[in-house]
Structure formats: C-alpha cells, structure tokens
Design a protein around this nucleic acid. Structure first.
Lengths: 203, 203, 203, 203
DNA sequence: AATGAATGAGAATTCATTCAT
DNA sequence: AATGAATGAATTCTCATTCAT
C-alpha cells in the first residue's frame, strides 16, 4: 500500500542509471559496455537495471531518448530572429551547449547517428527531427530571402549543416579537444557552411 | 631457398582472409563479426586465421592498413595540375573510385574514423596520412595562389575537406544510396567546401 | 485477546495464496512457476508470500499438504459397506470428486507422486496415507472374504489400486480429457484392477 | 584437411555427454540439471556441450531419442509366439531389461512420459510408438483368439498395459527398489493386467 | 599450413529472497 | 501486514583463442 520509495526516488534511480549508462556507452559503445559495470557505477547491483529497463539494447535506446529530451528543451529556447547566419549560429550554439553539458549522451547520439544502424535508426531520427526541422526552416527562409543559394533542396542543406556539426564534434573528440574547441564550433560550422574556403568574390 | 610458391600462397591466403574480414567488419562491425564466419567465407577454418593474424583486433587493424595500402596506390596516380578546384575534384574522384572498388575496406575505415575510438585512432591516422598530405599540399598551394582564404591553417582545411568526404559517404551508405550517389560526391564535396551555401558575391 | 478477525484474515490470505500457488504449480511445475505471478494472482505483492511461507519449496509442500487436507475430509465420508467392488468404487468416486473439485491441487499431487523425487517423497506419502489406509482396509476385508485373491500382500494391492487411479488421471489430463473421462475412471480402475483383461473363466 | 579427431571419437564424445546428461536429468529433471555439471561429469568443459547440442532443451530431447534408440533394438528381438500371456511377458521382460541396463535414460523417459508436457510430447510418442505397436498387435491377436475380453479397444488396452509398466517402475524407483523389484515386474504387470485381483471364477 | 574440437572467461539475464518503509 | 525496490547467486549460452593432430 505504502510505496517503499516515492515516485521521485524511482525517477532519480532511473536517471542515475541512465547517466552511468551514457558514460559507458560513450566510452565503449553498445557492445563494449557492460551492464554490470554500468549498474555498479550508478551505485546499484546488476539486477536493478532490469527493474528499470528491459535489457541492454533497450537501455541504450533510452539513453538516446533521454539525450533527445534534454536537447529538445534547449532547442526550443533558440531565438529565431535576424539573418540566416545569426539564426544558424544560435542553433549551433544551442547544440554545442547541449554537447558541453551532456557530453556522454551526445557522444552516444553522434556516434550512433553516423553509424546508421537499422536497430537504432528510428531512435536517432526521432532525436534529430526537432533540430533538423528548425534548421530546415532557417534554410527555407534563407533561400526565399536570397541569403542562401537556391540550387540545393533545403532538406539536403539541413542535413549537410547538421552533418558538419557532427563532423566537428567528431574531430573535437577525436583530437582530444585539440581542435576544434567546442567554443569555436558554431562559427566554424556556420562560416564553412555558408561561405566555403574560397575567397568571397572569387570564381 | 624459401620456395617462391609458398610465399605466394601465403600472401594469397592472407589476402583472402583480409577480403573476407573486410566484408564482415563492414557489415557487422568489430564486435559483431565472427572469426569463424570470416574464416569460412575465406575458404579456411577458424584456426587458420591465427596463423596469419594475432587475433581479432589485430585482423581489424590490418584490414584498415590494407585499405590504406590500396587507396594509397590510387592517390599516387592523381594528376596534380590546374586550379585548386580541379585538383580537389581529382583527389575526391580518386577517393570515390577507391570507395567504389573497395567498398568493404573503405566502409570499415570511414566508420572507424567517425567513431573516434582511441584504440584504432593511430591506425586511422596512418591510413589517412598520405591522402591528407596531398590534400594539404593543394591547400597550401591554393592559399599561396589566393584561391583559398588564408584565414585558416591548411591542416585544418585538409581535415575539413576529408571529413566532408567521410560525411558524404556515410550519408550515401546510410540512405541506401538514395542521396548522395557516389558520382555526385566529388562535386558536392568540392563545391560545398569551396563555395559554401551563401550566394557568391554576398558578404 | 488476539482479535478474531485478524486470525481469520490471516487464514484467508494464506488460502488465497495457496489456491493461486496450486494453479501455477499445476500449470508450470515447481521450477516453472513464479513467486511473483502467484502473489499477484492472489492479489498480493511478492513479499507477502514470505509472511506466510518460508519460501518457494515450502509453499509447494504446503500446497500438497492442503491438497491432502481437502481430500481427507472427503474420504472420511465414504460409506464403507457392501462388496469390495462397491467399496472400491465408492473410494474411487470420492477421489475423482476431489480431483474434479480441486483439480489444481490434485494435479500437483499426482504429478509429484509420479515423479518420485526424494525431496517431496515424504510429503506425498503423508498426503496419500489416509486414503491408502482406507483402501488397504478394504483389501484386507476382501482378502478375508475371498473376494480378492490372497496371493499378494494388501499394502501392495492398495498401492497398485491407487497407482492405477493416478495413471488414469494422468492419461485423462494428458489426452486433454479425450480418454478416459473423469466419469468413467472409477469403473475403469476397479474393473481393471479386479477383473483384468482376460475373459473371466479362462485360465 | 586431416580431421583433428575421428568420427568415432566424436561419436564417443557425444555418447559420453549423453550418458552424463541422462544421469543428471534422471536425478534432477530438465530444470534442475546444470549444463555445467553435466559437462564436467562427462569429462569436458561447459562449452563442449554446445559443440554437440543446440542447447539444454535439445540435449534433453536427444537423451530421450537415445533412450528410444537403445530400447528399440531390444524390442526388435522379442519373440512373438505363444499365448498372449507369453508374448506380453516377453515384451515386458524386454522393457525391463532396457530399464535395467539404461536406468538413467529410462527414468528420464518414464518421468517425461507421465508428465505429458507439450514440449517433449512428440519425442515421447516417437519413443513409445514402436513398443506400443507391438503391444497393440498382441492385444489384437488376443482379442481375435478370445484370450482377451473384447469389450475394450486395443489401443486403450495397449496404453493401460504400458501405463502399468510405467507405474511399476515408478513404484520401484520411488520405494528405492524395495517393491517391486525389477525382476518381478513382468509377471506382476502381466498377471495384474490379464487377471486382476478378483479370484478367477468369481463375477 | 590447416584443422576444428576443446576450452573457459565473460556476458546478459532471471528470479527467489530480503528488508526498509 | 503488505509492499516492491534492491540484491546477487546462479545459469545458460557465446565465441575468441589454443593446440594436438
């Protein structure tokens, strides 16, 4: 009758497990991570994970979903005003701020996104969708306003932009943070995406 | 002294194993692939793999190395003349042609590169080095000739260009070939890289 | 002093748990049944079972004991008059009526009896004893009266008779009720037991 | 090319595993037995079992099948001459001799037969079929010759006879061999089955 | 050099049991 | 008395690796 622990406590336990899982999955991937180690890291015994998640794969998907949830709340607050450049910078900064604060979760998501595995594809798409939608909206506005060359469909542009961000994260993590730093990623992504490497006014 | 034929046979066996391994690693990843299945696909029994390679991980690294070797021979033949644009296109085309002909090997390499795992990082860097060097040379020339904006170090530019290629491959494979096709990747990569999405002539 | 109601409530809870347990054990056996499912079926949570029973095995044994208790009360009412045949029929009918009304409990008992497991052997013997005693009494009377061939000890005869009943139940359940039906079991058991398959009057 | 061990050695290993498995399943049942313990008892490591059998359940079924195979060869040699009584005795003796020599296997089979579990039912039926067929043939002949009362279908008679044997085995094992002994089972089964407990000549 | 049977560490998962609330 | 979250021993099964032939 009287619940042994409150709903809040349960939610907290769940969260602890998700955080630990994210850290492990980020470091070792789905296969490499060990349920046992995750549980212990979260301060629980092996079995407890199974009180909260169906199994390892399910846990992995929930990590992605949680990553999405946390990101979504940030994206929602992004100002949508100004030039395409300003708006893209704002979006990129929102994404970077998510990555900074939830590095483990986002590492999992980015790696998984770039691996295109059928098992996790739907979860990834769901994760990306809200962000992609906002980017696409900016692209559409930019195309209309002539701020973006109209020779490529907006969905492709959005993918390229988001892909560029992912690429920069990969380079950031892969280089051990040497280059690029998280701080410079928004400018880097937007400048490269919009302006390219050729001098303006050439060609 | 050493019978020539034996050496050849050994090399051939090794190659057969590498090809089979590449196919399996490309499809299933390092963890998912099975030593047994690889051996059988190559026409050998499990044990034989251990006559040629130290173990699974070593085999994986050798697949990457072999991928590098094959690619390097192609890169070496790339004409390096004309504008930066032309030379980058030529390099991108060389890379695409490698991907087309050795899809399994390159899938393994690209995926691994984008997974930023410390264990395979050195192998990946070694793999990329020759290609990266050529790209960097073009960038350096381009910067000198004013064909490329001088506000970013050439190594970074090279990384971005190569990363863009990787991104496009991943999107190609992930979409089941829907977009982009291999054919359009060189133009796509070079145009985006050089020109960006903003209309030429704008700020 | 002790509140009457509490005692009753306890007894009722215990019974609810036993009923649920019997149903599960009958369907899934000792190993296959789940403490959790039993508790839920009884309207309680897992932990409650441990307020009433030592553990799973103990619960199983108590199911057998409860089965015995219920059967015993029926056996006690069996008329013991007439020929051996009549009395055996009456006893068999009493047993069948128990099986009909308490199928789950008796399934557990019969199956366990036929599985000859040392762990549960004592419980099974205790369960059977009262019934076996009555059957044996009939056998003894019958032997004395010449209604039964005197060439076999009465305890053995009793065991054979009870075993035949068990066998018929098992065949009834195993055939999904096809053959024999519960109704025909008493006659079947007694006829086979007393008369055999050879024509009367033959050797 | 050269097989590491001969086919014979493989067959022997398989047999050793089956024997060990039979012993364990006879003692502990399907659920209670441990794959690990079986392997060790057979002189192998855990993993080896999986080189010969799909899994625990499959191993269990193969034990039944092996029990059937061994029994079948004995049944095939049974003389089919003389009176119904003689022929049934011969069949019962053949079965008892199987049980004597392959006690573990037959314990598994008998227990499983009496449990009517859907998972193993087909295997059991296959096991029993050849024996049941022979018994039925005798019944049919006996009915025709008037040696058996014609008031019950021969399939039912066969089932009852085989069931009686099973019952006697159960009682033999359950009593720790006290009663009945294996030796007396054939006479016991046939006499009871044919003549019953009522004195010949009575109603 | 090739084989493939044997191995056993390792992993995921289950679930009876405990016990704080 | 009832609860159900936490536990962790136990179990099955996998598969890279070894090594006798």
């Amino acid at each position: 009758m009287t619940p042994r622990i409150t709903e809040d406590a349960k939610a907290e336990a769940r969260l602890r497990l998700l955080e630990a899982a994210a850290a492990h999955f980020a470091r070792q991937g789905l296969d490499g991570a060990s349920i046992d180690a995750i549980a212990i890291d979260a301060g629980y015994a092996k079995g407890t994970i199974y009180n909260y998640f169906e199994g390892k794969t399910q846990l992995f998907l929930e990590v992605i979903a949680e990553g999405a949830r946390r990101a979504a709340s940030r994206y929602a607050k992004v100002e949508s005003r100004g030039t395409v450049r300003d708006r893209l910078i704002a979006l990129a900064e929102a994404d970077v701020s998510v990555v900074r604060d939830e590095e483990a979760f986002q590492k999992v998501v980015v790696r998984e996104a770039l691996s295109f595995r059928p098992e996790t594809y739907p979860a990834i798409v769901a994760h990306l969708a809200p962000y992609l939608d906002q980017v696409e909206a900016v692209m559409a506005d930019g195309t209309r306003a002539g701020e973006i060359r109209g020779d490529r469909p907006t969905p492709q542009l959005a993918l390229l932009f988001v892909g560029t961000l992912a690429l920069l994260y990969v380079q950031h993590w892969g280089s051990g943070g040497a280059w690029p730093s998280l701080d410079e990623i928004p400018t880097l992504a937007v400048t490269d995406f919009l302006d390219g490497a050729a001098p303006r006014g050439s060609t």
